[in-house]
């Protein structure tokens, strides 16, 4: 195992985060804070509690997930797309590194960053709403698993993308809507039965439900099912990445 290489890629990617601190940390924290102010404090005070949880507290897990999902995806995709775009990927390809090491470096850095971001937002939320965490260990577990899974997903997008536009389209057009419709702001049980069934095809539902369970002990779907879905999605991503490296698809001609 080429530990030095994993470390080099990991540190390079984190350095990119520090270079763009405003964009990568400050801006997501600010926008999430706005959600807390508007939906948590302002509107939330007029809303009835869901499952006995005040509305402001109810949306905290969903909003953290929203950020972690979008940031993991866009970070990891950008991280691998840039060298492809600028041509610096030649160095990675010519280095004595395995596919696993490359992925560990890039995905590890993207996941670290969005995990930190998730924790910062969790801390920030405290300023606006009162919440409790019933299962801190599982909370962290879900957060880490989600960060890694969606960083893997972002890595795939970064490899596939042929332009900056394509790079941004997935987080914008897929992740955002799925998260909004996945129960960030409401409990699925509040939907009409038909929509409840349709919603169950949205993978994000399982993430948010499981994550919210770790806070308040209540969930839309069984926690075991949530965990299973995350792991399944993660394995799918790993499988696709394995295929990309075996075939050199869009990486090597």
């Amino acid at each position: 195992m080429n530990i030095h290489a994993i470390k080099a890629i990991y540190l390079f990617e984190l350095a990119r985060t520090w270079r763009t601190l405003m964009q990568s940390i400050a801006s997501p924290v600010l926008s999430t804070s706005l959600y807390f102010i508007v939906f948590g404090s302002a509107i939330g005070s007029r809303m009835v509690a869901i499952d006995g949880i005040s509305y402001g507290a109810f949306i905290v897990p969903g909003l953290i997930m929203l950020t972690v999902l979008t940031e993991s995806t866009s970070n990891a995709s950008f991280g691998i797309y840039m060298p492809k775009f600028s041509g610096t990927i030649y160095e990675i390809l010519s280095a004595p590194v395995s596919a696993v090491e490359i992925v560990m470096g890039y995905v590890g850095a993207a996941a670290t960053k969005s995990l930190l971001l998730g924790l910062i937002i969790l801390g920030t939320a405290r300023i606006f709403v009162d919440y409790s965490i019933a299962h801190p260990f599982w909370m962290l577990g879900f957060l880490i698993l989600t960060a890694i899974t969606f960083s893997l997903f972002g890595f795939i997008i970064g490899v596939m993308a042929n332009s900056f536009e394509q790079l941004q389209i997935v987080p914008m057009m897929v992740i955002m809507p799925l998260t909004f419709l996945g129960g960030s702001f409401y409990s699925i049980s509040m939907l009409p039965p038909v929509w409840q069934t349709i919603t169950l095809f949205n993978p994000v539902v399982y993430l948010i439900s499981g994550f919210r369970w770790s806070f308040y002990g209540v969930a839309d779907v069984n926690v075991g099912l949530s965990l299973g879905m995350i792991l399944m999605f993660m394995l799918t991503c790993v499988g696709i990445i394995g295929w990309i490296f075996r075939t050199g698809y869009k990486v090597k001609v």
């Binding site: 030095h4 290489a5 890629i9 390079f12 350095a15 990119r16 060298p83 160095e91 280095a95 590194v97």
Partner: peptide, 19 residues
């Protein structure tokens, strides 16, 4: 070469990448 990096960082990176 990644243009936003410093000369020192980029050679350090390369050395690490090659193990």
């Amino acid at each position: 070469v990644s243009i936003f990096e410093t000369v020192w960082d980029t050679v350090t990176f390369s050395r690490g990448l090659f193990g």
